[in-house]
């Protein structure tokens, strides 16, 4: 009788242990991270981008963005350029898809024309920065395969360290190493390895703030290119959620009006 109880409790403990073991495979971690960010709805923000070259010379760009979560697919977003003044009012609209190429359009106010742009360009630089287009588009789980490495401390924060491999042939990377905060699944750091598997860039996230008591957004993203010595700093401000954006705000007409 006693033995049986003992055995039962051991089994029960075992089951509990299994239930409380955190996600272990890389894919599970990526899914958990995506899940933790589900339901954010729609938001707007302002963005200052500072480019620093090898000699320390700085150039600043300003833009602002609108984005919306889409059920069962990738996000919709619009980015409007505010400076430099010659591109003021130029706006890009992206419909991210979980599978296949994204849809992307560019509005050029000087010729009042909306042009579709080929979105297979993932590895090219965004506005002369160290960010590639693929670094800025929403990283849908389906766009990579994953491998769990280990849990480790990163600047005093316990993280899941995983490797992910882009599925797209047009990606500029062989692999990325991503550190997810173990507690809330926000991304703390990404290392990008080029096609020859040499370390190309490191992206660190900081000044995180929580919105709607659930969603974490970094206030600062810093990309360092180890191969050319250049840096790009993104500083986000005026992040707002629940701003009432709908599909109607992501049409070509809306893109022309975007300010």
């Amino acid at each position: 009788m006693k033995t049986t109880t003992k055995i039962t409790s051991v089994i029960a403990l075992g089951i509990m242990a299994v239930a409380f073991v955190p996600a272990r495979t890389g894919l599970e971690i990526a899914i958990a991270a995506e899940k933790s960010d589900n339901g954010w709805g729609n938001s707007t923000n302002k963005l200052t981008m500072t480019l620093t070259n090898r000699n320390g010379q700085k150039t600043t760009r300003q833009m602002h963005g609108y984005s919306m979560e889409v059920d069962g697919d990738g996000d919709k977003s619009i980015t409007v350029f505010d400076t430099p003044v010659d591109v003021k009012g130029t706006a890009s609209m992206t419909f991210t898809h979980k599978v296949g190429d994204d849809d992307q359009w560019l509005y050029l106010p000087a010729i009042s024309r909306v042009k579709r742009i080929s979105s297979s360009n993932k590895s090219g630089p965004f506005m002369g920065s160290e960010f590639a287009f693929e670094d800025l588009s929403s990283s849908e789980v389906e766009k990579f395969t994953y491998k769990y490495i280990l849990d480790e401390q990163l600047n005093g924060v316990l993280c899941h360290k995983i490797e992910r491999f882009p599925l797209s042939k047009s990606s500029g990377y062989k692999r990325n190493i991503v550190w997810f905060n173990k507690e809330n699944y926000r991304v703390e750091k990404i290392e990008f390895y080029d096609r020859k598997d040499a370390l190309l860039k490191t992206l660190t996230y900081s000044e995180y703030r929580q919105f709607l008591s659930k969603y974490w957004r970094a206030g600062v993203m810093k990309m360092v290119n180890h191969q050319n010595g250049k840096e790009t700093l993104l500083v986000f401000s005026e992040i707002k959620f629940n701003v009432g954006l709908t599909d109607d705000d992501f049409t070509q007409n809306a893109l022309k009006r975007a300010r």
């Binding site: 360009n121 590895s123 090219g124 630089p125 590639a132 047009s170 500029g172």
Partner: peptide, 14 residues
């Protein structure tokens, strides 16, 4: 049509 070779030779040129 238009065919784009993007990020040619990893120099960022399209």
């Amino acid at each position: 049509g238009e065919f784009t070779f993007s990020n040619v030779l990893r120099k960022g040129i399209d």
